[in-house]
Structure formats: structure tokens, C-alpha cells
Design a protein around this nucleic acid. Sequence first.
DNA 1: GAGTACTCATAATCGATTTG
DNA 2: CAAATCGATTATGAGTACTC
Length: 345
Amino acid sequence: MATRDEMQAKEMTANKKMTMRVILAEADIRKVILHSRPSTVEDLITKLRESLGLQNNFSLQFQDPEFNNELCNLTDLQELPEKPTIKVLPVLDLVPVSSDEVFSDTSTADTEILSCTPQDRREPWPEFFDIPTFSVDVEYRLRQADLLFMSEGTHLKVSKELKHEILERLAESMYSYTAYPTAAQFESVAAALISKHPCLQERGSATRCCGWKNSLKHKMGNYRTKRRQSGCLDVAVNAGKRGRHSSDGQPANKRIKKAKKGEINYLPNFPDGFDQAALEEARKDLADEMQKRTPSGLLVKQKMDQTFALRRKEVVDSEPPINTMVKRWPALFTEDQVFMEFIRI
DNA sequence: GAGTACTCATAATCGATTTG
DNA sequence: CAAATCGATTATGAGTACTC
């Protein structure tokens, strides 16, 4: 019965025009009108490829109204709203178009530009840094230039705006592992970049990528400043150490040394959708639960995970005495949670 | 105390836009 | 149509903190 309804719904929408907003790159967002509503995701991809003249493989994400219009991978066309906003994500391979492969690649699904979720920093630095895919436009240009490099050995002259797109994407990707990459990590990213895109090699330098390493280092610094300005606690905690900043009467952050994951000042951002007040509520629930004769282990663990960022902020910002901590966070002093807290840090 | 790394202010650069 | 101006971005260097 439900299936019949679905089929009717499909039939009703099949003949309808479909208007959508398609994000190809940050600076290239187009309005696309299809004469009929596609029935499958593959179908949609084919139609988009035709109407936009795209040659590369790509997968799609859409702004999901169920999640406050955050981007989600598009797997079922039924999920699309009436006038959807869709983001095109290039899939890199040199094999001709094969729609099966388009769907097998979900690893490129990273889109957030300035969100500050603590999950950002969950992954350890990978053994081999994977150069992320750039916008469709940039990928296209790089691929053309790579082919030219291989056939004629010509290096690509990188324009300012192309350099920006590359650095920005790499910074974003590195930031997901650490806000403070080491020299060796910059080196590995630069090496991975020219290995994946030989046209970006430099003449002159021994490693062929010294300039990129340098630019990445600068870019990362500038990128941290940008994150700081957009309110990311994990890098903001390290700012404001310079003398001139205390002119407004506020003491400079001098006593706070540089924080990295695993160090004592590690200060993650609040989880998405929670502010200080919401986490304080969760803390109260947690304290109440601990009053019980047998607190629920599951609930304690879940709330302790959730409130980790708030706890770190208290410790780093106000350095509370231990009895205050015992009072506010009784669960922290159970054997299990001492252990868990170390794992979290 | 030397060496290194980071922040931050600012200089340099470059494309886009406006002006004469 | 070239010069001037603007705005965004990257690069530089001083000042500072941390480590060994």
C-alpha cells in the first residue's frame, strides 16, 4: 500500500519541472532547471553532467531540511525538497565515467568551511596525507595542467586565485587533524600535493615543493587567525598573548601556554548545537544522576562525553580548586571516568 | 641562552573596479 | 585606455614564549 502511494507520488512528480540551486564552487553557484524530475540519483547526475557540461565524475550532497539545511550525502532522490540546493563534489579517478564508482566513494564528503565541532579533531594525523579533492573547477584545471605536464613537461603558472583555492582547501583539511602541524607534516602535505599534481612542482628547489611548504605554513597561521575570529575556542585560547593586547584592561593570556591535543590546556569547542547553558544543564543532570544509589553507567558516560568541552573550559580558564571540581563533577572522580577522561584528552 | 615556533601588525602583491 | 584606487590575500618581521 505504501509502495503504491510512493509510485503514485513518483508518477506525479516525474513530469514536473525541477528547479534547483547547484553549488559547483564557492564562487560558482548556478540555477538549474530540468524539464522532468529524475527518478534516481544516477539519473540526476547524468542530467546535471549534460546541462552543466561537466566531464569529471562527481557525487552529490544536498541541504537537508531535516538537519537545519546542513549538507548530507544524497542517496535517495525522495529526500530532496521541492527546490533543493545541491553541492557537486568531484570524485577523482582517471577511469571514464562509471556511475557505480561515483557512489562507492563517500570519503570526499567533507564540506563544512567554518564549523567548530570537536569531532573536527578526532582523527590522528594520517600516515600518508591524502590530498583532498578541490572544487570541480580547480580539479578540472589541475587535471588539464597535469596532462600537459606529462606530455610536454610544462609547469603550471599558478594564479593568485588558484593558489588561494588550493591553500584554503589544504588548510581546511590539515586543520581537521591538527591546528598546529609540524614542519614534517607541512613537508608531507607539500610532497603529497606535487606527487598528486605534478604540474605544481617548482623548479629550483631540491624537493620541488619548498615554496608550497612555506605557503602552507603561512596559510595555516592565517587560517588559525580566521578560525579564531569566527569563535573557535581551540585556537582562540592561544591568542592574545602579546603585550599590546592588554591595553583594554583585560589581562593577556600570558599564563596560558600553547595547547595541543594531549597537553594540559587542550580546549575543544562545544559540540554542535550546544552552548554553555545547554552543557551546564547536562552537567546538572549528571550531578543528579550521581546522587542515585546506582547511577546509570551509560547515561554517565554519555553525559560526560557531551560535557567534555565545558569541563576543559572550566579547567583551563578558571583553574578551579579540586573541591570545586569534586562538587561540580562528582562523576569525574569515579575510577571509570578518570580513565575515560584521559582517553578523551 | 640558543634555537624554534607562534601570534600579530603590517607590508607587498595582484586582480577588479573606478576615474580622468 | 591607462592610471588610480580598492579589497582580498599572502608574506614578512618583530615580539614573545617554550624547549632543550
